[in-house]
Design a protein around this nucleic acid. Sequence first.
DNA 1: GATGAATGAGCCTTCATTCAT
DNA 2: GATGAATGAAGGCTCATTCAT
Lengths: 225, 225, 225, 225
Amino acid sequence: MAQSDTVTRILDTAEVLFAERGFAETSLRNITSKARVNLAAVNYHFGSKKALIQAVFARYLDPFSQRFHTALDELEVKYKGDVIPLEVLLETMAGTVLAVPAERNSLKVFMRLLGLAYSQAQGHLRRYIQQQYGDVFTRFTELVRQATPELPDAERFWRLHFMLGTVIFTLSGLDALRDIAAKDYNEQVTVRDLVKRLRPVVVAGMNAPLPSAVDEGHYANACAS
Amino acid sequence: MAQSDTVTRILDTAEVLFAERGFAETSLRNITSKARVNLAAVNYHFGSKKALIQAVFARYLDPFSQRFHTALDELEVKYKGDVIPLEVLLETMAGTVLAVPAERNSLKVFMRLLGLAYSQAQGHLRRYIQQQYGDVFTRFTELVRQATPELPDAERFWRLHFMLGTVIFTLSGLDALRDIAAKDYNEQVTVRDLVKRLRPVVVAGMNAPLPSAVDEGHYANACAS
Amino acid sequence: MAQSDTVTRILDTAEVLFAERGFAETSLRNITSKARVNLAAVNYHFGSKKALIQAVFARYLDPFSQRFHTALDELEVKYKGDVIPLEVLLETMAGTVLAVPAERNSLKVFMRLLGLAYSQAQGHLRRYIQQQYGDVFTRFTELVRQATPELPDAERFWRLHFMLGTVIFTLSGLDALRDIAAKDYNEQVTVRDLVKRLRPVVVAGMNAPLPSAVDEGHYANACAS
Amino acid sequence: MAQSDTVTRILDTAEVLFAERGFAETSLRNITSKARVNLAAVNYHFGSKKALIQAVFARYLDPFSQRFHTALDELEVKYKGDVIPLEVLLETMAGTVLAVPAERNSLKVFMRLLGLAYSQAQGHLRRYIQQQYGDVFTRFTELVRQATPELPDAERFWRLHFMLGTVIFTLSGLDALRDIAAKDYNEQVTVRDLVKRLRPVVVAGMNAPLPSAVDEGHYANACAS
DNA sequence: GATGAATGAGCCTTCATTCAT
DNA sequence: GATGAATGAAGGCTCATTCAT
């Protein structure tokens, strides 16, 4: 078997199974048997299951990180010191996110993986992602800060995560939702359709009026934590 | 030991551990040893791990479902045939969601669990929730439909899920995000604060302009799936 | 619930399940749930699973033992000191065996149980049967001895067990064999039919010529144990 | 540890324990601890306990099936079209049965296993044996049919099973019976002795006169099932 | 470089039994 | 007299990992 064929086969199979079932629910046996590879190969090539999980992410995030840096470079050149508008920043990020897995025909898988990275109990994974790719996100949020000077820093932080939740939740649960949509609305939705639908919602969310301080304590009597 | 003390102790411990680690990563031994209860007690009282998971959800969703029905009844009486405004509907839902676990001092846990219900590979759980509580959500979405007659049905479906993602993603990942926010913005955020912040964003998202058909194919060259 | 209703329900259910699956494969839960009786009732009324197994046998063997003694009494009166012919002894035993469970409509179950008593790893059961009912069988074999004076004692011992094997094996596996027979020979066989078929074979087996000493060592080179 | 040493040790230990206690009463832990082998080795090499049980049988039945086919081939050559006498067929089967485990010094174990295969609630095992080795037995019964043209087909079917019961019941319960015989008749019986004793009985049983139709209903009043 | 074999820890579940009520 | 609750032991099986070859 060719040298890195095994490695590739493992990664290809692992990302699909991880995306389908989650990390804990996917055993190395599941992966190696479906990939028709020796069970010990995972530990041989990657060292451990954790390292395999990280490698699966790295295969997406390395090119993403690189392309996103390049795209931001180009934007900074184009706007040469002027503030880059929020819509442009969001479009750029969306474009890069879509571009990377497009080459691997598996945007859906990538989105599922991103969702899992947030929701599953894999502390090592969040630490790994933060450490390896934190700088791109830091750079991006700084540009967003410049594009939304009217937003308090904390508000911007939360709204970015609100919108992150919107996107990841939707795209990572795409299959299930798509089935419902297809049944109820007789509509075959593609990722492209969804992104088109997401755009105005995300922009509106980011530009929503600030919460009025008046409402404070509205639920105070109902919420203890 | 008091009659149903064991049952309660198991449920209390299970919901915390499930919320912290997920279902697959939490063993019955983890639960029973922390709850200082015999391992076999889980199977005696619940029948299986799956049934325990469902029971954990039922303890939240049963009262939620009941209260939400009641709240919607009251709204329908109050508006006697008139359309109930979207903001009122959203407030009512938020109020009910907050009220239920408030009595148990564990809104955070409830939100984590809801997030897990969507993201983890527990098909039985989604089936169970859909089957047991589907009707409340159906009733709610029908009222939302009447409140947003200008939205195409499919668009409303997707936007509701966009907003669901916003809320669940944020609140279920609350701890991690709160830590970051505390460090970067020196801010101790409560769930109440977050709900206050979420409200204008959700309303703005639901009321965002419809996506223009002109944009179609915008990312066509970047997205293969 | 009436006093001994529970006991009867347990015994009725237990004998059926034991006959179907064997002793180890039938749990007290199987029995009590099918009998719609409390799990603890078995230990309450019988003391242990072993005791339940013995009770199931006692319900058949007590009347059998009593009737067989009576039948042999009558034979001894009738033949007043003369030797009772082998055929008569065999017929009498067969008649008694058939008569007992006939009242409970479950000869098949009784035979399965007898087969299990021999084949399953329930040492306590063999000891129990030997201790409780050994005397009837001793009395019977003594009469057989008188009826077959030409047979060496050891030969008679073995032939009785050969024939016991014939009967128990056939009748205890009745269902499976009946299915095959029904399929291959288009024949719906009853227990009565089988007993009719067994009679000449058993008699011929008992009366077979003695093995010639010449044959000794015929398989010596083929058999090491 | 040598390559298949583990497999052999597991099989050797398993067949002894199965024969002594039955399948359900023998745990994998019993087997692996006695065989001084890791518990997981059973699942690694065999896949499941069921598969182990089947493997234990296969180790006897594979060579038996092969040898018996060969022996029947030789008989057909020798008798070139003529009918092979019943005695010869029975001797041939007996010889093959004795020859196979002789090499493994465990005829007794083999016989116990055969008895268990019939009496224990292991449906999968009967299915497996029928499927894997059904053809040899079909071939054998066809030759018996030619050797006993005077017997009605159904009668021959039942008599073969009568005799099968005789043999399996006796040989599978050998140890217990041998103990009794040793005590009562001061006789140390070997398997060879028993086979010598079985032969005339089996032949006489097969050749017994047909049951007279006159006797029909003899026990009719005594047998309800 | 790659793999078949083996391992120890842990999984969920079921068992017969006991006990307080 | 009868039962719901609880228990310790044991069941078969799967896991990620290691190791000799």
